[in-house]
Amino acid sequence: MKLNLALAQINTKLGDVEANLEKHLAYIEQAKAEKTDLLVFPELSLTGYVLQDLVAHVAHKPVDDDPVFKHLLNASRDLDLMVGFVDEDSRHRFFIASAYLSGGKVLHVHHKVYLPTYGLFDEGRFFASGDSVRAFDTRFGRMGMLICEDFWHASPPYLLWLDGADIMLLSSASPGRGLNDKEKLESARWVERVTKAYASMFTSFVAHSNRVGYEDGLHFWGGAMALDPNGETIAHGPYNEEALTFAQLDLNQLRRTRARLPLLRDERINLTASELQRILQK
C-alpha cells in the first residue's frame, strides 16, 4: 500500500486565523490536485508562533460548528489533514495542538507535552502542557503526532512506537539559530539528525513539517522531511521558502525493514517498565 504524503511548509500571519485558514484551503486544493492522501501542516499553522497575549484570541475547538474547523473538516472528506492550532478545553486552558482530520471527523488531537520555556522560548508562560502521548488508527495504519520540543525528548517518540505508531508526524515552528561556518544552521542540523535517528531506531516512517517566514527577528527555516523505516530520506523540502513537498510512502517497507531488522520484536518493554519503576522509586 502506498501513501501519498504532502508536507506544507507555509508562512503564517501572526494572530490572523482567517488569513491562515485561507492559505490552508489553497494548499489543500493544490495537494488534492496532486492526488495527495495526507497533507501535513506545521506547528501552530493556523495562528503563527510567538502568540504571547494573542493566545486566547486565536484559540479554536476542533468541532463541526467551529468557524475554522468546519471548513477543514469538510476538506478532510477528500484527503486527510494534520493542522496546527491553539486548542481551548472546556475549562479554558490553552494548548499548542495538532489535529488529525479524516473523512469529516477528528481522529485525534495531540496537546504539546513539552513546552520550551528557556532561551528564546516562553511557551510555558502562555500555554498548558498536554498530559498524554497516544498513537491512533487511520485508514493508512497507526500513526502518532508530536510537536517540536516533544521530539527533542526521546521518550515521546519511544512511547508512540510502543503504542503502535508506524508513521510519526512531527511538526515544528523552529526558529533558526546557531549560524556558524557549517552548511546548515545548528537548529536544522539537530532536528534532521534526530528525525533520522527516530526513523532508523524505530524502523518507522517519520515526516517532519516545519514552517517558514519571519516573526520579528525570528526566522523559521522549513526543510520538510520524510524518512523511511531504514532512516533514508524519501523527500526533503527546500529551506527558507514556502513549499509543498511530496513523498510517496511505500508502507510495505515496514515489513521488509522489520523482517531484516527486528528491533521492534526484540524491544523489551517489561525491562524498560521495571527499570523505570525502580528509578522512580529511588
Binding site: 490572523d16 510567538v50 504571547q52 497575549d53 494573542l54 520579528d216
Partner: peptide
C-alpha cells in the same frame, strides 16, 4: 502587555 511588532501581519 505582550505582542510582537509583527502582530497581525
Amino acid at each position: 502587555f505582550l505582542y510582537l511588532r509583527d502582530w497581525g501581519t
